Amino acid sequence: MTSRRQFILTSLPSAAVLLSGASIATAQAARLEESDPIAVALGYKHDAGKVDTKKYAAFAAGHNCANCQLFQGKPADAWGVCGAVGGKQVNAKGWCSAWNKKA
Rank of each mutant, 00 (worst) to 15 (best):
A58G: 14
V40I: 12
C82G: 05
C65S: 06
A27H: 01
C68T: 00
M1I: 01
T53K: 15
A103Y: 11
C82T: 05
G87P: 12
K101L: 13
P75L: 07
V51M: 02
S97D: 13
L18R: 00
G86T: 12
Y44S: 00
C96H: 04
T26E: 13
N64T: 12
G83S: 15
P13W: 00
A66S: 15
A60W: 05
M1A: 13
H63Q: 15
L32G: 03
K88N: 10
L32K: 00
S35V: 13
A22E: 14
K74C: 06
G80F: 11
A29G: 01
A98D: 11
A15Y: 07
A58Q: 14
L12Y: 02
G43A: 02
I8W: 07
A92L: 05
G83K: 14
Q89W: 04
N67Y: 11
W95R: 01
K93M: 11
G43I: 06
A78W: 05
L9Q: 03
N64F: 03
T26F: 12
A16L: 12
M1R: 09
K88W: 03
N67A: 10
Q69L: 11
S97M: 00
A16F: 10
V40Q: 13
T2L: 15
A92W: 03
A84E: 06
V17R: 09
S11V: 03
I8S: 09
Y44C: 01
L18S: 10
F71S: 01
S3C: 08
L9V: 05
L42Q: 10
K45S: 09
A39N: 06
A41S: 14
N91H: 13
Y56N: 06
N91F: 13
K102L: 07
V17H: 07
S23N: 11
N67K: 04
A25E: 12
A41T: 03
C68E: 01
A29T: 08
G21V: 10
G49R: 00
E33S: 14
Q69D: 13
L70A: 09
K101R: 15
T10F: 08
V81A: 04
A78R: 11
C82P: 05
A22T: 07
G62E: 10
A66G: 06
C82D: 09
G49E: 10
G83P: 04
E33R: 05
L18G: 05
V51C: 01
L70Y: 12
T53A: 15
V85W: 01
A57C: 11
N67D: 02
Q6R: 15
D36G: 07
K93S: 15
D47G: 03
C68M: 00
R4V: 15
K45C: 03
G49A: 10
P75E: 07
A98H: 10
S3P: 03
S35F: 10
L42A: 08
A16R: 02
Y44M: 01
G83C: 09
S11Y: 08
A92Q: 07
H46P: 02
G43K: 08
P13Y: 03
S3R: 12
A27P: 00
T10Y: 11
G21I: 04
K93W: 06
R4A: 15
N67G: 06
L18D: 02
A39R: 01
R5H: 03
L18W: 04
K93D: 10
L9P: 00
K88F: 05
A103S: 15
L70M: 07
W95E: 04
K45Y: 05
